[in-house]
Computed example of a mutant assay.
Amino acid sequence: MFTYIGLMRFTDQGIHAVKDTTKRAAAAKALAKKHGVDMREIFWTMGKYDMVCVLESKDEQALAAFNLAVSMQGNIRSQSMRAYAADEMDQILGKLP
C-alpha cells in the first residue's frame, strides 16, 4: 500500500457551501473506496490549507483517478504527497552508498 498526504483548499464554490463540508467528506470517503483508496483520516485545519487527509492506495493510478473525480466536483483543489513510514524510509536509506 502507498500512503499519501492530501492537502486541500476550498474553491470559491466550496467555501460558499462550507456548511456541507462534512457531508461532502463522507461522500468523498465512499467515492475513495469505489476507486480502491482508503481515506484513513481527514482533518479540517486553519492556515494555508483548509483540510488535510491521510490516504492509502494499492496503486498510484487509483489515487490519481480518485483525486480527479473529487476535483471535478469543484469544491476543492488538492495536492497529494507520497508519505513514507519509518520502515519504508529505512529501506530507502539502505540503498544509499
Rank of each mutant, 00 (worst) to 15 (best):
K58A: 09
S78L: 13
K19A: 14
T22Y: 05
Q79C: 08
M51P: 01
L31S: 07
T45F: 06
K34G: 03
L7E: 04
L68K: 10
A62M: 10
H16S: 10
D12Q: 14
R82Y: 11
A65W: 03
L55V: 02
A69W: 10
I76H: 08
R40A: 08
L7P: 00
K29G: 15
E88C: 01
M8L: 12
A86R: 00
E41K: 01
D87T: 13
A32M: 02
Q13C: 00
G14A: 08
F43A: 10
Q13P: 05
D59S: 06
A28H: 05
M46I: 03
A85S: 07
M46N: 04
L63E: 01
G6F: 01
V18W: 06
M89P: 13
R77K: 01
K34P: 15
M81G: 00
A30S: 13
F10C: 07
K48W: 08
S57D: 02
M39L: 15
K34M: 04
A25F: 02
A85F: 07
A69V: 08
Q13D: 12
R40L: 13
A85K: 14
L63K: 02
K19V: 15
V70I: 07
T45K: 01
F43P: 09
D50H: 06
A64V: 05
H16G: 11
F66S: 07
H16F: 01
K34D: 12
K23T: 13
K19F: 10
G36Q: 04
T21P: 10
S71Q: 09
R24V: 06
Q73W: 12
M46H: 08
A27T: 06
A65M: 08
L68V: 14
S71W: 13
S57H: 01
H35N: 15
R9E: 02
Q13G: 00
T45A: 08
M8P: 04
D50V: 08
A85W: 10
S71F: 09
I5Q: 11
L55I: 11
L68Q: 05
V18P: 14
M89V: 15
S80Q: 10
D90K: 06
E60A: 02
R40N: 08
A32H: 03
G74E: 03
I76R: 07
L31C: 04
D38K: 14
E56R: 06
T45D: 00
R82K: 07
E56T: 02
Q61E: 11
